[in-house]
Amino acid sequence: MAIIRNPSAAGRFYPRFKGELLDTIHENFVNSSFGLSHDLNLTTDNNGGDRKVLGGVSPHAGYMYSGSATAHTIQEVFGQKVPDTVIILGTQHTGYYEIGIMKEGAWKTPFGTLDIDTDLAIQLLKESKVVKEDDSAFNGFPHGREHNIEVQIPFIQYAATKAQKSVKILPIKIGKMNQNVLETLGKDIASVLDSNNNKDIAIIASSDMTHYQPQNPRNPKEEILQIQHKRDEAVMEAFEQFNWQKTLEKATDTSVCGPQCIATLMIIGKEMGYTTAKKLQYYTSYEKIGGTGPSDYSVGYFSGIISR
């Protein structure tokens, strides 16, 4: 029997009830300060033409903090063409150090279920020696409580519903940081994508940016602007240079929590002939809650895309 991966982040990172979740995602899109100032906009023919945006970086915090940055990525990934399948490159917070995928089953959220693209999973398992089938990477204790892939899924469902199209997913948890392994993984995924000429596939890389604890939490604004912003700017500058090695290096110099996901997305893009890496949005949780007053913790949120 195929596994249904039940939500573990509903009620914590995003609302557990469908109506409230729908309203929350909509609010993140239309937010005029951090979002798009409008709802998700799909082209009239949202299945036409070649894919111009391979994929993007999307954060994975609570929606009240990071959701507006995710909205920018979803708009670009889905706006011109709604994919058949979304590969979600996930990091780990629970001590998983392999590269694992779920080969079959579905992921459930308050919006319902999204099926896993089993055919694509089988192709990748045949192609790659660094990827393994591992349901335990996503289900049960301790890895079933991991949120970073799950929080991407309601946004994908939101877009798929607007497009009135069935979309599948392929979750890949990347627990390795070695450059050679990541390069192999990226090339393997690119090879599988190149062989799927009749299937449109996009990629989301799940990562938050620098996690910063101000030394002066009563008056943290200058620290956040001068230290946290500059650390993240170094990563985003390397991203826009489309230099995956430099991006990985700069990200691992600070507390970015999905540098391997960002780097793998960039490697895939390079291998497939994509030419541009572009920043869409960046802000911190401190700025999202007002940007004034005390704060003992601030996290950066970045939206960026790989395109032709």
Rank of each mutant, 00 (worst) to 15 (best):
A106Y: 10
E27A: 15
D200R: 05
P214M: 07
V192N: 01
Y97T: 15
G112M: 00
G291W: 13
M64L: 14
A106H: 13
D135W: 06
T109D: 05
W244P: 03
F17S: 14
N41M: 15
N28P: 10
L21Q: 04
Y14L: 00
H93L: 13
R5F: 03
A163R: 09
A277F: 13
G186H: 09
F242G: 06
V151S: 00
K126V: 06
Q228L: 00
L248K: 06
T73Y: 02
K279G: 14
V30D: 03
L193M: 01
N178L: 11
Q241F: 01
K162N: 09
A160L: 08
V82Y: 08
D296A: 15
G293Q: 11
G112C: 03
I122A: 08
V30E: 13
M1D: 13
T254P: 08
M209Y: 02
I25A: 07
A71S: 10
G140A: 01
A10E: 15
I267Y: 05
A9W: 10
A71D: 04
I87R: 03
A234I: 03
G67T: 05
I262C: 01
D45R: 10
K18P: 12
H211E: 07
V235G: 05
Q80S: 09
H93D: 02
H229Y: 14
Y96L: 05
T85D: 09
K199H: 02
H60C: 03
L225Y: 14
I122D: 14
Y14A: 00
E133F: 05
F34G: 01
H93Q: 10
H229F: 08
Q179S: 15
E127C: 04
Y282N: 02
F239A: 07
